[in-house]
Nucleic acid binder design. Sequence first.
DNA 1: CGTATAGTCGACTGAAATGTTCAAGTATTG
DNA 2: CAATACTTGAACATTTCAGTCGACTATACG
Lengths: 160, 160
Amino acid sequence: MRLTTKGRFAVTAMIDLAQRQANGPVTLAGISERQKISLSYLEQLFGKLRRHSIVGSVRGPGGGYRLARAMNEVTVADIIAAVDEPLDATNCGGQENCQDEQRCMTHDLWTNLNKRMHEYLASVSLYDLVNQPKAKAVAATIAMDDRLRPARRTNVAVSA
Amino acid sequence: MRLTTKGRFAVTAMIDLAQRQANGPVTLAGISERQKISLSYLEQLFGKLRRHSIVGSVRGPGGGYRLARAMNEVTVADIIAAVDEPLDATNCGGQENCQDEQRCMTHDLWTNLNKRMHEYLASVSLYDLVNQPKAKAVAATIAMDDRLRPARRTNVAVSA
DNA sequence: CGTATAGTCGACTGAAATGTTCAAGTATTG
DNA sequence: CAATACTTGAACATTTCAGTCGACTATACG
């Protein structure tokens, strides 16, 4: 998973959307103005978000965008994955070949890092972001651990 | 903190260096050949690593690079910070100004995310990477879950 | 119906970051 | 001195970032 400013733009815009959708669809023009993000850039981002079924659109006057799911069902990971989309590529070429000699020693590290980051980002929903006067995400974060899940120690780690 | 392929190249090169420095300085030409990274790109990366006192150089025949500290004193976070250098990241311009109306609601999120990532990357040293026959980092990592995510969505493996 | 609204699509742009390549140095060993 | 290897800097193709533009489609409303 890549972390760039692009994902941040998308998250910022989504927060704006989540905050205002109670009054009906939210226009990109409005988000653009409030968040100081170029309208056309928003169009690109929301095109991707729409194709990933994270938002839905309503055309025509009075139209705009709405969330496609409940706020607490949309995580930051979803948003970032949608806009940063196509990329790609665990270090070692494609899947397995790595290096003979070293067996791609960084593989585990990066896979693991990705997992960590994804877990964290997936633990924060739009709901968390909107309903937080201040540092609440921090608390939500620490709470994330493995006690939610009934013992299921499968070893998923390997796959690419 | 930004996560790109650049940091991964640097970490890969540093692992190679750490593994071989017992026999004296390691040349970039060797790293280049073994790790399939362009020599000139390595030169750029190691220039930064040197300026950050993560490695030291020995000129002349038989020269090359050495670690400037013990393996367990060099973390992945150090390496990435050195090469990705100009990193910044907090959304709101510099420090505080954010947005009046929203007070930069993403601020906490990103700050926290950065902290998390940094903590994790700072918890893994070169020593850990070199002295791990196989999945040790994975073991260290644990037991976190993938929660809601329906197991497989094609984009499991993200990566830098 | 016509028009204004607002999303949809595609192409195009300038700036920056990625990686690579070339070239000219300097320090050190032998 | 000559070979080795780091040091520096410039030029370069490619990709991504972020924004712009123009044309199109769907729809609410007067």
